[in-house]
């Protein structure tokens, strides 16, 4: 089962990863981050993550630090 490591302390809530994930596994959370907006969370209860790295490649703030497949 693939997964990503997300460092929400670096997330600036640009939400580019929401569009990048082909499975829609990244969502807005209820926690606020450094910009005062909701940071993202990785929600993969059914193990759907493909490990495609699209979110990590798109993130401009190094918030997705590792991807395992």
């Amino acid at each position: 089962m693939a997964y990503i490591v997300l460092d929400t302390k670096k997330c600036k809530s640009c939400y580019l990863c929401l569009d990048a994930c082909p499975k829609g596994l990244i969502k807005k959370s209820s926690e606020t981050g450094m910009t005062g907006n909701f940071v993202v969370e990785f929600d993969d209860k059914n193990g759907e993550c493909l490990g495609c790295k699209c979110c990590a490649l798109t993130c401009p703030d190094l918030a997705i630090t590792e991807v395992y497949k």
Partner: peptide, 22 residues
């Protein structure tokens, strides 16, 4: 389980970009 993505070594480990969101 294999690591398929990692941050570049030449970027400092504790680096937090100060650019605007997006």
């Amino acid at each position: 389980m294999q690591q398929v993505f990692k941050l570049p070594d030449c970027i400092k480990k504790d680096a937090k970009f100060t650019f605007c969101p997006g």
